[in-house]
Amino acid sequence: MDSSIKYLTDLEGTQVKFDAVAEPPFNFPAQTSIILEKLGEDSNRLTKEDIAAELGPSDTAGKFLCQPASEEDHNRRAFLRIYQQLPIAGTETKKAAIRASQAVDSPPDNLELNAFRVFTKLDCDVVPRLLGYQQRQQDHDEGVPGGHITYILWEKIPGDSLDLTEFWRLPFADRQAIRNKFRQVYTKFMLCGYMLCMGGPSKIIYEKPSGQMHICGFKRAFPFDEPQTWGDTHYYQYGLIQRSKFPFYLEEKPPNKADWIEDVNGWIW
């Protein structure tokens, strides 16, 4: 299993066309997005032995910053994720017929798309809006002819990922205001029945001027097995409180701890 090779390269400036989706409650118009910048890629390049062990298929997932191709929406930004089946390691230069024989009959269940579809059905307003999606088969001149490609497009909401070091430098009252907002937002998020595989401050998008907050990062989002209730451990999972015995590392200059408060349960607020 090799994740060092990148496959979704040199796509800046290319257009991705989405067909209209009219399957209530999903109603997305046909649209075209232009890729502006690649933000990252995670590849899962598997060997024949991996495939035999049912670890496959090989695939990759890349995230991109986009803008609409239409001039009236030219200043808007969105994020695009591309999931694409890859050839088995060592077969990348084999004939197209050999690579085509590796195509799966149907695309694997896509966790991110499943989550976004649920959020849309439930009209969840504390996550970015799904703007469109597309699933197709690869062409003859692509890596795995007949293999799957899935495109997911969602809005880029105002704000940035919460900076944990900056957060812990704020006065106690300001930290509490952010925690209170997070509890409000995350409680609504839990009602959708989903959890993130890896929580953390990067999943909290916070716009300072307005105080608006959203939860993001659904590449590995899973439905709950049973309903969840709020607990202070959710603050901890996202870095908003610390354990007194095991404080986490804060980058750069340590903040002033004068107004840090430890409660009877050993949480630092």
Rank of each mutant, 00 (worst) to 15 (best):
L130R: 05
A20F: 05
T187R: 10
Q176S: 11
A52C: 05
L46S: 03
G159K: 06
F28M: 10
F218N: 00
D259H: 11
M195I: 15
C124L: 15
P107A: 11
A89T: 07
T187I: 06
F182N: 00
D232R: 14
M213N: 08
R243A: 12
N27H: 12
A89D: 15
K257W: 13
I241A: 06
W154T: 09
L170S: 02
M195R: 15
L153N: 01
H234L: 13
L122T: 09
Y238G: 00
A96C: 09
E71N: 14
G217K: 01
A173R: 04
A221P: 02
Y83A: 02
D123M: 11
E112P: 04
G159H: 01
P171N: 06
F79S: 01
I88K: 01
D174R: 00
S4E: 12
D50A: 08
K6P: 08
D259G: 06
N110Q: 08
L164T: 04
K94R: 11
W269E: 06
A52F: 09
W230M: 05
I152Q: 02
T120E: 14
A89L: 14
E12W: 03
A100H: 04
P255C: 09
E251S: 07
A69L: 12
I178Y: 07
T14Q: 13
A96K: 12
P227G: 04
E112R: 11
E12Q: 09
W168V: 00
T165P: 02
V21R: 07
V264Q: 14
F26H: 09
H148I: 03
K253M: 07
R136E: 09
E226Q: 14
D225G: 15
Y186K: 00
N27K: 11
D163Y: 08
F18T: 04
G62M: 05
N75T: 13
F189W: 06
I205R: 03
L113E: 03
D123L: 10
Y194F: 15
S106W: 12
Q31E: 06
G159L: 01
T165F: 10
A100Y: 03
K156A: 11
K6G: 07
L113M: 02
T165R: 15
Y151E: 05
I82M: 04
K257Y: 13
D225N: 13
K156Y: 05
A69R: 10
A221M: 09
L8Q: 15
L39D: 02
Y194S: 04
G56L: 12
I152F: 01
M190K: 06
L36D: 10
A100W: 10
L153Q: 00
L46P: 00
E155M: 08
P201F: 08
F116N: 03
L131P: 01
I205Q: 01
P24M: 07
Y133C: 05
D225F: 14
P254C: 08
A52D: 10
G217H: 02
L131K: 07
F182W: 02
N114P: 05
E166M: 11
V185P: 01
E226R: 15
C192A: 14
S3T: 10
A69G: 13
A177Q: 11
L170F: 05
A20R: 15
